[in-house]
């Protein structure tokens, strides 16, 4: 999957969970500050992303995923590993 494909698939999850238009889920956007994804919704996004991308995102790692780009990069690194 390309970076853009991962971003687009993640955007669909964010849309499903939080109702944020998929178009606005761009790499430079902060989940909490720009997209209004609250902490419980973020956990839902993480759990769905784990299933979708076949990765594990430990709770300790979730706090480092500030932006959509952080999450996409984490998924890229750990899918490859």
């Amino acid at each position: 999957m390309s970076t853009e494909e991962i971003r687009a698939a993640l955007a669909e999850i964010v849309n499903e969970v939080a109702g944020i238009p998929a178009d606005s889920v761009q790499l430079d956007k902060s989940f909490s500050d720009d997209l209004d994804v609250d902490s419980l919704s973020m956990v839902e996004v993480v759990v769905e992303a784990e299933e979708k991308f076949g990765v594990t995102i430990p709770d300790d790692e979730v706090k480092n995923l500030k932006t959509v780009g952080d999450a996409v990069a984490y998924i890229e690194r750990n899918r490859a590993a």
Binding site: L40, V43, E44, V47, E50, E51
Partner: peptide, 10 residues
């Protein structure tokens, strides 16, 4: 257990 919804309690 990882798939249990984090919002199931509320």
């Amino acid at each position: 257990p990882r798939r249990v919804s984090p919002i199931s309690v509320p």
